[in-house]
Write a protein that binds this DNA or RNA. Structure first.
Length: 349
DNA sequence: AAATGTAAAGCCGCGACCTA
DNA sequence: TAGGTCGCGGCTTTACATTT
């Protein structure tokens, strides 16, 4: 790797990790994680209105139960999930799930229940069915019982909140991984739209909702480009179009509706993940080639290791490759190469 | 038949670990 | 040490089912 490339990579990493820091902070607020303990404390005033007689059926271990009930600062509602409470306040699903250190994905695997919608349901419009409340309580309580038992009579309130936060951190991390890929796709989409405008070939935007189109209007362009997620593509004045989707991320569509080329964007910058992203791109391109055997495929990736580079250059599945970081630097050679390739595939010189 | 709801599969990757 | 491999997170799309 040249010193230039090293500097480029370093700068890209610096930007990415700065974004990651603020992303975590933003998500922590968005998930309302810190408000849960307060909500629980408020509920403690009605704790006597909840019976724990059936605790055995709810997955609560007897040792853990007696430990909590005799603990000076921990309360039952704080630690164990009560099915009635869960039905009354479905949003607290997120609290008990994280106390039990279960991911949304794990709950969907283990209890076959999609908790995401219910956790985000601020207005309590989605009811939680009785059997679901029981099922979830059992799962959560079994896990928190495991944790308390493993602590050997030393579990504290601070540790309880520690669990809440670490589990939430894992969730935010997963969300971040999505955001990386999404953002990289959008970056390339915006580049294409702007270039289309520069070349005076931008005809209209295709809206994601319904079938509406928005005629190209210079005054609205800036807003449209910053809200690129609202659009599923653009129409060009030579009656071709560029479509944004997933798998492939971007498709170039000919006058007759056939796909002239597919573009896959990989935003991840971690060298350790280079081969994996290469594999993912191959998978996407494989599908495109299956549908039309000779279609040119273009890979845009942030980080390619030497090993992956040699594989790409020998791989007929990938027609051409561009470095995303290079593409983004002002007036770079690869930017022009990329744009020339894309627009000539669309019949624009 | 159209609209809406739900489950499954696929996509977005990272960090830890391990090896050449 | 670089980077290949593994396992895991969330989110979106797709396929299928159900309701209107």
């Amino acid at each position: 790797m040249s010193t230039d490339e090293k500097a480029l990579l370093l700068e890209a990493n610096r930007i990415n990790y700065r974004l990651r820091s603020t992303f975590f902070y933003r998500k922590l607020k968005e998930y309302n994680t810190l408000s849960f303990p307060q909500i629980i404390v408020e509920l403690l005033s009605v704790e006597h209105l909840y019976s724990w007689d059936e605790r055995k059926e709810w997955g609560i271990g007897e040792d853990a139960f007696s430990y909590i009930i005799t603990h000076p600062e921990l309360n039952l509602l704080q630690v164990f999930c009560h099915p009635k409470l869960l039905r009354e306040h479905p949003r607290l699903l997120a609290y008990y799930r994280n106390i039990a250190v279960l991911s949304q994905k794990s709950v969907s695997y283990l209890a076959k229940i999609d908790v995401k919608k219910k956790e985000n349901d601020v207005y309590n419009t989605i009811p939680l069915e009785p059997d679901q409340a029981i099922k979830l309580s059992i799962l959560f309580n079994e896990h928190i019982t495991l944790i308390i038992d493993s602590s050997i009579q030393s579990f504290t309130e601070r540790e309880l909140y520690g669990l809440l936060l670490t589990s939430t951190g894992a969730q935010i991390d997963g969300s971040w991984r999505n955001a990386i890929g999404e953002e990289a796709e959008k970056v390339v989409q915006r580049l294409l739209v702007n270039e289309a405008k520069e070349r005076n070939v931008l005809g209209a935007f295709i809206s994601r909702v319904g079938t509406s189109v928005e005629q190209f209007n210079l005054n609205k362009l800036e807003e449209q480009v910053s809200n690129i997620h609202k659009y599923r593509g653009i129409l060009l004045i030579n009656q071709t179009s560029i479509l944004f989707s997933s798998e492939p991320d971007i498709s170039l569509i000919a006058v007759n509706g056939t796909t002239v080329s597919v573009i896959e964007v990989k935003g991840g910058a971690d060298p350790a993940g280079a081969l994996e992203r290469y594999g993912a791109a191959k998978k996407s391109f494989g599908e495109a080639r299956r549908l039309s055997p000779d279609v040119p495929t273009i890979l845009v990736a942030s980080c390619i290791t030497p090993e992956v580079h040699t594989r790409i250059s020998q791989d007929t599945l990938i027609t051409s490759y561009y470095n995303l970081t290079e593409l983004l630097s002002e007036n770079s050679i690869s930017y022009h190469q990329f744009m020339n390739e894309v627009f000539s595939l669309l019949g624009i010189v």
